[in-house]
Design a protein around this nucleic acid. Structure first.
Lengths: 245, 245
DNA sequence: CGGCTGGTAACTGTTAACAATCCGCGCGCG
DNA sequence: CGCGCGCGGATTGTTAACAGTTACCAGCCG
């Protein structure tokens, strides 16, 4: 068998290379990343000409990308007045948290009966990572591990539609991770809650794990409802001081 | 036959309400409606040139509309190979049902404590409508009232983010209403379940209403899981015979 | 007779130019 | 001095033409 005769090399096709994508897809991915990473914070005005020059393409692909981002809820377009990065009010943030709770409870119910040794090990590793990062005060890195823990449950649920809906929602919320952390409060308590969820999952008790997950996600909700807007702002700024120092 | 009558034919307003919107918004709304009403059934190939001639606009707005529809999950675009109306497999349909259950349970939990006399009256009217349409065998009209019943709960939840996510999901599922009805089975039992949900809501027992709603939505799921693809197809065709006669 | 190859037509991706609308600003009027 | 009013620049909405890719088909070679 001629080992080099395989003309169609599948080995570099399975990973979508950015070079082969269409310009509108690249613009979409680029802007999405810029928004999700907060380099384009909520409220930023997005002008087509500026973006097209920055990316070196014409306005057509830019418009398509903006339209898709609008359909995803990441930007709002005001007809004939341009697009701005969408921002969530406190109320909308709370609403999103409620939906997220429902989705993650479903994820846990579906995932727990399917969990194998490798899934449990994955979750255990993430929990340990969270614990060490919480102990060392690396809040940003803690948040990353925390997000991965929750997303892992959604992935292990095996329900792709759920993953799609969840990721879209998380994409809208992730930019407010500082607000989330402020509302979360004590990280050690958060780690303990994750450990409890994982223990229930390991025991195969889907219902218990689901209830624990619901309570866990409800913690920031009740804090948000009991805080005024001023208190929230004050807490966020003091959080910023603590992190940047 | 007459594809060259493009310039003058569509210059008048087929849909007078949409005059103020941009062309891409009109194209988006038009295609969305065509897809949701099943005039463009799943699997239909959407060619930009044909659509632009049909709507009397150029390809730019059409492309923007297709991009937004793709972001909404209503069409899938294969790069350089055109767009097709997205279709749901049995598995994806079941997945969507699971997500829908989670969302509607949340809606019931939120809505019940907020229900006033007018909300209850609205739900009662819809239930009565469903009952009469089920009794007279008007299955299509029954489905409409049924959809409205469920959507009303979501609306009365007061959570706009939930409404947004729910409507997007329902938009993907509504085209398969025949499959839904086949899986639902006995309409009278369905009506009875709605009455029970409404009674619990009237009593202010949100938890009971939520559980009843979950069981109600799970009925088609368990039937779908217990059916093979062939049985489902057979049931759908026999359903078509029964409806069209 | 089947599979490969080359050409061709149709379609998508992209661009630049054109048209329409909005916004800020200064001017004139009351 | 305040307020409308239009005018000019900037920005979005739309179009037609161009470029590149894919799919299809006929004809040739094995």
């Amino acid at each position: 068998m001629a080992p080099e005769a395989t003309v169609q090399s599948n080995q570099n096709e399975d990973v979508p290379r950015l070079e082969n994508l269409t310009l509108s897809q690249r613009a979409h991915a680029f802007l999405r990343d810029e928004i999700l990473s907060n380099r384009l914070p909520p409220g930023t005005e997005l002008q087509e000409l500026a973006l097209s020059q920055q990316l070196g393409v014409s306005r057509g692909p830019i418009r398509e990308a903006l339209g898709r981002l609008a359909a995803e809820g990441l930007v709002t377009v005001r007809p004939r007045r341009g697009a701005v990065v969408h921002s969530l009010s406190s109320g909308e943030f709370l609403e999103a948290y409620q939906v997220r709770e429902a989705l993650e409870v479903l994820a846990v119910r579906l995932a727990v009966p399917l969990l194998g040794p490798e899934g449990l090990a994955q979750l255990q590793t993430l929990t340990d990572t969270m614990a060490s990062r919480a102990a060392s005060g690396h809040v940003t890195e803690f948040f990353e591990a925390n997000s991965l823990f929750h997303e892992t449950f959604v992935q292990l649920s095996g329900n792709e539609k759920l993953q799609e809906v969840y990721r879209r929602l998380i994409g809208q919320m992730r930019r407010y991770w500082r607000r989330s952390l402020v509302l979360r409060g004590d990280l050690r308590r958060s780690v303990a809650e994750h450990r409890e969820i994982l223990r229930a999952a390991r025991e195969g008790d889907a219902e218990k794990a689901a209830v624990l997950m619901a309570e866990h996600i409800r913690v920031p909700q009740v804090r948000l409802q009991s805080m005024t807007a001023d208190e929230l702002l004050e807490a966020e700024t003091s959080f910023d001081r603590k992190v940047t120092e």
